[in-house]
């Protein structure tokens, strides 16, 4: 499949450009994480009718920078009874898991670091690496809270990976490709061509629209659970488990966990954007459509999804473990199966 990467087009494919292509999303993630942390601080404050950070820089916009500097300066403690190797490797594995998903995310028509045909499959595969890192961290800390947090995290991930995968597979039935760039190209045109509204097609698609909207919601809920965000943050629930799997972590390693969480938030937002919200396509047909605008639309949509995640975090209280399992296995899973069957039926009848 012909794929275009603007860096390769401009400078040719050599060691330097390949390194650039690998590093570019990292630069984006660094800047994005700082913006997202500020957004989180400010949104939480505003929802609670506070002002939030106001002292660092104008309107406190330098607060995330100050926090990163603070975390770097802090003492990096390794507990005496911890498994040193696993303990020190865990934060980096979590971040690797989150960052490797960026390899297939199509930022624009002319930029996606890699264009493998099994893009969606790859994202689900590497998404589990983060869970591995969390278990490693929780086990190696040699702390009962960390261990419980890690166990909860795995239970949660296994439960929610299934409905998330089925929601995405239902769309794959419609697209008949797992290449994220191809999925984006299918949704070109007005916003009713997005898979949130049944994808491209004639008006005959109207009866699957409710099901694609439900699938989008299922994926969003499952993605929240996979990123361990409220209301699904039982692996780190402060009031029950101190800080869950990262109880023993401090300084830069804690920052890595924090950073990985925000990076993974963007990964799930990017998948949601690509699969359901048209990716880098403009919602208004040919208006503001193009490679440059593509980057804008993609980041705009992705960040909007992240903002909704933050908004939900400051709205809903935490689920209990049994409620979490009930929601995952008894509600999301059967409904996603039903939607999957209906969409398969539509594709067969078409």
């Amino acid at each position: 499949m012909e794929s275009i990467n603007f860096l390769y087009e401009l400078l040719g494919k050599n060691a330097l450009t390949i390194t650039l292509v690998v590093i570019l999303p990292l630069g984006f993630v660094l800047i994005y994480a700082l913006v997202a942390i500020l957004a989180e601080l400010k949104t939480s404050a505003w929802i609670q009718e506070r002002l939030g950070p106001m002292r660092t820089g104008p309107w406190g916009i330098l607060q995330p920078v100050a926090e990163v500097i603070k975390l770097i300066q802090k003492e990096d403690i390794t507990p005496a009874k911890a498994d040193k190797l696993l303990y020190n490797a865990a934060p980096f594995i979590v971040f690797t898991g989150a960052y490797s998903a960026f390899a297939v995310i199509p930022f624009s028509e002319y930029f996606a670091p890699s264009r493998i045909d099994l893009g969606l499959f790859y994202i689900f595969a590497v998404g589990s690496i983060s869970a591995l890192g969390i278990v490693m961290g929780g086990w190696a800390s040699n702390n009962k809270y960390s261990m419980m947090g890690a166990m909860r995290s795995v239970a949660q991930l296994i439960s929610y990976e299934v409905p998330a995968a089925i929601a995405i597979l239902s769309i794959v039935v419609l697209t008949s490709t797992m290449n994220l760039q191809e999925i984006n190209k299918l949704q070109t045109g007005w916003f009713w061509n997005w898979f949130l509204f049944g994808g491209p097609g004639t008006l005959a698609k109207w009866w699957i629209v409710p099901f694609t909207i439900i699938l989008c919601m299922i994926y969003f809920i499952a993605a929240l659970a996979e990123t361990n965000r409220l209301p699904f943050d039982i692996p780190e629930g402060e009031s029950e488990l101190v800080a869950g799997f990262h109880t023993e972590y401090s300084g830069i390693k804690f920052a890595m966990f924090f950073f990985a969480e925000y990076a993974y938030m963007f990964v799930v937002a990017a998948i949601l954007t690509t699969v359901f919200l048209g990716g880098w396509n403009s919602p208004f047909g040919n208006l503001m459509q193009g490679p440059g605008w593509g980057v804008f639309w993609f980041i705009f949509k992705g960040f909007s999804v992240v903002m909704v995640q933050i908004w939900i975090r400051w709205t809903l209280p935490r689920f209990r473990v049994d409620q979490l399992m009930y929601l995952g296995w008894k509600i999301l899973l059967p409904i996603s199966f039903v939607c999957f069957l209906i969409i398969s039926l539509y594709v067969m009848l078409k």
């Binding site: 949104t43 505003w46 929802i47 009718e49 506070r50 106001m54 908004w311 400051w314 809903l316």
Partner: peptide, 21 residues
Amino acid sequence: TTFTGMKITLKHLFTKKVTIQ
């Protein structure tokens, strides 16, 4: 109820803040 809650938090997002600097 999720949407009700989100509506409430959205309303609070834009109300006047109570913090005194």
